[in-house]
Design a protein around this nucleic acid. Structure first.
Ligand SMILES: [Mn+2]
Ligand SMILES: [Mn+2]
Ligand SMILES: [Zn+2]
Ligand SMILES: [Zn+2]
Lengths: 117, 117
DNA sequence: TATACAAACGCAACAGTGTTGCATTTATTT
DNA sequence: AAATAAATGCAACACTGTTGCGTTTGTATA
């Protein structure tokens, strides 16, 4: 499927409308359903960027199917507005207050990317 | 203003519709503009929860006005769906790949809160 | 106090996204 | 070729974000 192609090509997280514009012609609903199904199948993961835009990225090989526990950092460049999956930047442990149990974590860093700096 | 009252009472991050329902009568636009202005003034900060819902929370005293650099952890309980500002849970430094510079960070932890566990 | 000006408020309207139902087209399987 | 299953497109609706504009309310001033 072309969606997976596009997502695999770049290791960026793309919004639905960005994906949409790589197609000559596609219905937004079809795209929505494809992305939903890919996410449920553990093939892509979904992240919300600093502007609230939902973005999708291909999952790495070692991503457990449904749970999406591949805990890597996401980076949002404030120049080019691209979102990077920093697959190799791991998330340090966080000490939660007593009584709070942890089952997942999202880390979104803002700044300037290597190309824009 | 009642909005600030509500946000100060709880130290949770509330969605606009949650805030709306604490009012007897208020226009959603008025609320939207109030929240926008409070955020620009550095009185409240905005966070997107794990479902993509935007939420607002009162800023701590030491929050720098416009920039919102009070870097604390946010916690989303998957039972009660409340979002907590863990004001005292600090965010560890993260090593970014070369060329990436950091100017802000959001950490959102999912799990079960102290009341629900 | 009456008038003038400014701030707050409410409504209409529009765009974008998420979501579902249903009918049609396309692909598979007997 | 016929029957069945999967993918697609469209209509529709809800909710959020956002702006414009006119009305109400509040404040300052002559
Ligand atoms: Mn990622
Ligand atoms: Mn907070
Ligand atoms: Zn960049
Ligand atoms: Zn809870």
């Amino acid at each position: 499927m072309k969606v997976l192609d596009e997502l695999s090509k770049t290791h960026l997280a793309l919004s639905q409308s960005e994906l949409e514009s790589t197609f000559r012609k596609v219905d937004r609903i079809t795209l929505y359903r494809a992305l939903r199904d890919f996410e449920e199948a553990g093939i892509v993961h979904k992240i919300v960027d600093m502007n609230g835009t939902t973005r999708f990225a291909i999952c790495s090989d070692d991503c457990p199917d449904a749970t999406h526990n591949e805990e890597h950092v996401h980076f949002n460049c404030q120049r080019c507005h691209k979102m990077f999956c920093l697959q190799h930047t791991h998330i340090p442990d966080i000490q939660l207050p007593p009584g709070f149990t942890h089952s997942g974590i999202n880390v979104l860093v803002q700044g300037v990317c290597n190309k824009c700096s």
